[in-house]
Design a protein around this nucleic acid. Structure first.
Lengths: 184, 184
DNA sequence: CGGTTTTTTGAGTATACACTCCATTTTGGA
DNA sequence: TCCAAAATGGAGTGTATACTCAAAAAACCG
């Protein structure tokens, strides 16, 4: 753990480098050497702050997961459009974190603890989308709202996934089309 | 390339071993040693047949990709249900290869040629879905059919993705719900 | 059977990886 | 200013990985 200013600066540099590398090339690209090189730091410094490479990566992953959620404090008043817009903004504005989010979610399938974390987060999001649909009379029953929310979020994730493979893909347009279709 | 019967048998054993390992533990589990051990073969024999480990894995992945498409010869006559059913069957029957498919697609971000291969395959699938929608009068125009197909496939991919994280998720039910919603 | 080609073996190589150690330098509070 | 704690540099360790090589065995074909 960093206690002096110098240590905190180093910690920040390491996390930035890790995030960039994860965004660019996924887990495989985030080797210790790559992280240290980009952060301008030696291995010894890294291990003075993080007990393990995994810890640094998980920290970045946590940030990415939290960044998906808009304003978690005001939960219970969002409209469906608020939630979808927030997701679109997350993907387009914080594209690095969005890529980290998607890449870790998939490759985390082998690591049970990562998978559990993503799943828990996903379930919470579905519930939030479903609640917003009920409030906005966009679903007829709680069951209907859950099914719709699951499919809508699936579509958003799938479209984001598509966008990762092809940056010229019009994610925003298709996302809005998906919401419109969901409402019918 | 194998020319004698013994070589062909070895090739088969290696591909089977690779498929099993990918199914059980994903990409990370398919090391050269693990493949050779399970196939009952030495490293030298492996490299007498495959130029590279990647080649063996891509061969298995190609088979999985082709399994998504039902009856490619009769293209132009499939209904939307045919295509969706085939996708559902692929995900549920060849579940672990579906995960490998997703893993390769995302980690392909580092290797541009892999990413292109997956993208090309995805685009073909979208076109096929769109054509089926037009034939079945489930879309009003070519543009509408493409947008619907992109969103529907996005949803299917997203739901498969969800299912990868949680095997108890009712992928089939939600996939059918997504198609029903797409039709409205 | 004899000769040529393919296949197999298994030790060996090179490399990349996460991580350690510790002497040295820097930091920040008393 | 002094000192204990923290941070740093950077060589070094152990290990797992993909892949090679040359000699020996087996397979094919006349």
């Amino acid at each position: 753990m960093a206690r002096y200013q110098a240590g905190i600066r180093t910690e920040t540099k390491i996390l930035e480098a890790t995030r960039e590398l994860l965004a660019e090339g996924g887990l495989d690209a985030a080797t210790l050497k790559a992280i240290c090189d980009r952060a301008g730091v030696q291995a010894g410094s890294f291990y003075n702050i993080f007990p393990t490479k995994e810890q640094a990566i998980m920290q970045v992953a946590r940030d990415a997961i939290q960044a998906v959620d808009p304003d978690p404090e005001h939960s219970g008043t969002d409209t469906l459009d608020d939630l979808v817009d927030a997701y679109i903004r997350f993907v387009t504005d914080q594209s690095d974190l969005a890529r980290v989010y998607l890449q870790l979610a998939v490759s985390g399938g082998s690591d049970a603890s990562v998978a559990r974390r993503f799943l828990r987060h996903h379930v919470r999001r579905v519930e939030r989308f479903a609640a917003a649909m009920l409030r906005g009379s966009e679903a007829s029953s709680p069951e209907d709202s859950m099914a719709r929310a699951e499919v809508l979020l699936g579509a958003l994730d799938g479209l984001a996934f598509r966008w990762v493979l092809d940056r010229s893909f019009d994610f925003t347009g298709h996302a809005r089309f998906a919401v419109a279709q969901c409402r019918r």
